[in-house]
Simulated assay, not measured.
Amino acid sequence: MTSVSESPPRAEVRRRHRGVTLAAGLLVLVAVLAFAVVLSIAVGARAVAPGAVFDALAHFDPANPDHVVVRDLRLPRTLTGLLAGVALGLAGAVIQGVTRNPLADPGILGVNAGAALFVVLGITAFGLTSVTGYVWLGFLGAAVAGTVVYAVGSLGRDGATPVKLALAGAAVTAALASVTSGVLLTDTMTFDQFRFWQVGSLTGRDPAAVGQVLPFLAVGVVLALGSARTLNTLSLGEDLARALGQNVLLTRLLCALAVIVLCGSATAIAGPIGFVGLTVPHVARLITGPDHRWLLPYAAVLAPLLLLVADVVGRVVLRPAELAVGIVTAVIGAPVFVVLVRRRKTVRL
C-alpha cells in the first residue's frame, strides 16, 4: 500500500497539469501563427491562385508577375511582420514586468521618438529615400534615446526606479518629438517621405533591411527570454528581490537593454507600430498568469499573430488600396485595451 509521503503534493500535481496545459496551448498558437504566415503570403490586394503561390515558393519564375508578387513583395512583408511582432510582444512584456506598470509600452524608453528623429535627420541631411537606409538610422536613434532615458532615470540615490524611468521617458520623448516636428514643419519634402514610415507599415520592406537587424533582434530575444526568472522575482517587490540575492540594478539594466534592442529593431524595419506591445502582454497574462516563464513565450507568439492578421485585413478591406498595419492594429488594439483596463484585476502587476 502506497504511503501518503510517497504521493506527490496536490500543489505539485496542479503545477504540472498547468504546465502541460500551457505547453499545449502554446503549440496550438504556434500552429495558428503558421497558418497566419501562409495566409499572409497567399492573400493580398492582387488575387493569386493557391497553385501559383506554391509554384512561386518552389519554382520561382521572374517572368511570372504572380511569382514576383509572392516572392518579392509578400514574402519579405510576412517576414518583417513576423520578426517585428516577436520583438514588440517581448519588449512590451519585459517593460511592463520591469517597471511593474500595466500601462507601460515599449515606447516608454523613448525608442520610437529617437528612431523617428534620426530618420528625419537622415532624410533631411543625407537625402535617404529607401527603407534600407532608414534601418541603421532608426536603430541608432532608438538606441541613443533609450540610453539617454536610462541614464537620466538612473540619477539619484535609488538608481533607475520604475517611476523615474517613466518620467525620464516621457520627458525625453517630448523633447525629441518637438525637434522632429520642428524639422518636418520647415521641410515639406522630408515630411512627405517621413509620413509613410511614421504610420507603421510592412509594405515595401527589403529582405536586406531585415537581414541587417536580424542579429540584433536575436540578441534581444535571448536577453528577454533569459530575464523570465528575474522578472518573476522582481515582481515580488524590490526589497524581497534583494533579500533573495537578486541584483535589482543589473536586472533593470539588462531588461532595458533587451527592450531597446527589440523595439529599436522593430521600429527600424517597420516604423512605430502602436498597441501591439501594450495590449498583447495583457492578453498573454490572461492566459498564463503572472509567470514570465510562460508569459514571454506567449507574448512572442501572440504579437506576430496579431500583426500578420492585421496586415492581411489591411490588404483586403479597401481593395485594391491598402491600409497600413499601424492603423489596423490601432483600430483592433484600442477597444481590446479599453476592455482590459476596465477589468482591473487583469491589469494589476
Rank of each mutant, 00 (worst) to 15 (best):
L257G: 10
L262N: 04
V172W: 03
T180E: 02
T186L: 14
L250G: 08
L253I: 09
D192F: 08
G146V: 08
L244W: 12
G153F: 13
V248K: 05
L244E: 13
V261Y: 00
V222D: 01
F216E: 09
A166Y: 05
Y150W: 06
L223S: 09
G146W: 06
L236T: 12
E238K: 04
V144R: 12
S227C: 05
L140T: 15
I260E: 05
L244A: 13
S201D: 09
R242L: 09
L202C: 07
G146C: 09
L202D: 06
C263M: 02
L202E: 06
G159H: 12
S227M: 09
V199P: 04
S181W: 00
V131G: 12
A208K: 13
V148D: 08
S178A: 15
N232H: 06
W197M: 03
C263L: 01
L225V: 15
T188H: 04
D187S: 12
T147D: 03
A228H: 01
Q246S: 14
G169H: 09
Y150D: 02
L167G: 11
T161R: 01
V183I: 14
A175K: 02
D239F: 03
L225E: 00
R205M: 13
S181Y: 03
G211R: 05
L236R: 10
G220C: 07
S265K: 08
E238P: 14
G153E: 13
T230V: 12
V179K: 02
V261K: 00
A256L: 07
